[in-house]
């Protein structure tokens, strides 16, 4: 009898807790806009180091604020900010390009530009390809490096996880709607770096900041992957790093984002961490990958 009572009351406790969780989600969005100087930024792991650095600096200037930066991936960041569960959702991709997100509900703040380039194992002896050839490699039409003037070696395609920001950017600029060949998928830059370095015939793509000895970045149509070429859009594989917020935000959140977008921060930390300053860009890109003069 006593036992049943205990188990029963625990069950009730559990149910009320569960109910509480559900309720919190719906009300938290309004709460965030009215009180507290706490900022929570969640999402893209590619953007995480930059936001962490910014948070550290911002908090020394504004000691009363607390900024909490977490990873979780772009998808998580976007869905959390759309629900109002976090203050800022970090994302590598436009909310419009992400399935299941109502982009009209949230506001985009672009805080950096990141350039990406195809990288290969140096042993392939290929240093330049055309955009058309690149597309053929990733759709499985070209399967041997010999066809591109390199070594007689099978091409090993290493793709990024479906839905990841890096892959979305690469597919938008290179594949343009074509289906990628079935291949290995990795979700972190570090692993891709390691695999390309150690696997003969491997090709993948990485953000500029992940280039290092042992992997060969490819020039596309003779254009080298450099920050300068990204600024003029001669190098076309690049994307923005976004910080999405709800429409109504606290002054602290606004100040924090303004701080990241300031020239002072862009010219120092952003460049130091291997991103490209938004102020250097001579062109703008919209959510549908259309580029126009600034």
């Amino acid at each position: 009898m006593k036992k049943q009572l205990v188990i029963g009351s625990l069950f009730l406790l559990g149910l009320t807790l569960l109910a509480g969780c559900g309720q919190q989600k719906t009300t938290s969005s309004t709460e965030n806009t009215t009180k507290s100087t706490k900022v929570i930024a969640v999402g893209s792991t590619a953007l995480q180091p930059l936001v962490e650095e910014a948070a550290k600096k911002f908090q020394t200037d504004h000691p009363k604020t607390s900024i909490n930066v977490q990873g979780g991936g772009s998808g998580t960041g976007l869905s959390q900010v759309a629900q109002g569960a976090v203050t800022i959702g970090n994302s590598d991709i436009f909310a419009e390009a992400s399935q299941g997100i109502d982009a009209k509900k949230i506001v985009d703040h672009q805080v950096a530009v990141v350039g990406m380039a195809p990288v290969v194992n140096p042993d392939t002896k290929v240093k330049n390809v055309s955009l058309a050839q690149l597309k053929q490699i990733f759709t499985g039409k070209i399967t041997n490096w010999r066809e591109l003037g390199g070594k007689d070696e099978k091409i090993v395609v290493v793709n990024r996880a479906a839905g990841s920001g890096t892959r979305a950017t690469f597919e938008a600029s290179v594949l343009k709607g074509a289906q990628a060949v079935k291949s290995q998928e990795q979700d972190s830059n570090g692993t891709v770096q390691q695999i390309v370095k150690s696997t003969p015939g491997a090709i993948s793509y990485l953000a500029f900041s992940y280039f290092k000895s042992g992997i060969q970045p490819l020039a596309v149509d003779g254009v080298q992957p450099t920050a300068k070429n990204v600024a003029t859009n001669r190098w076309q594989i690049w994307s923005y790093e976004h910080m999405y917020t709800q429409k109504k935000i606290t002054s602290t959140t606004q100040k924090f984002i303004k701080y990241i977008q300031s020239s002072r921060f862009q010219d120092t930390i952003v460049k130091k961490l291997g991103y490209i300053s938004i102020h250097d860009m001579e062109v703008v890109k919209d959510a549908h990958n259309q580029v126009s003069e600034k």
């Binding site: 772009s74 998580t76 299941g100 479906a162 839905g163 990841s164 979700d187």
Partner: peptide, 24 residues
Amino acid sequence: TPTATLTSKLTTDIGNTVAGTLAN
């Protein structure tokens, strides 16, 4: 053959999908 397990697929993809979509 390179392939994938239940767990490896989960760790690779979970952060890149949006809650409420089929992918998630």
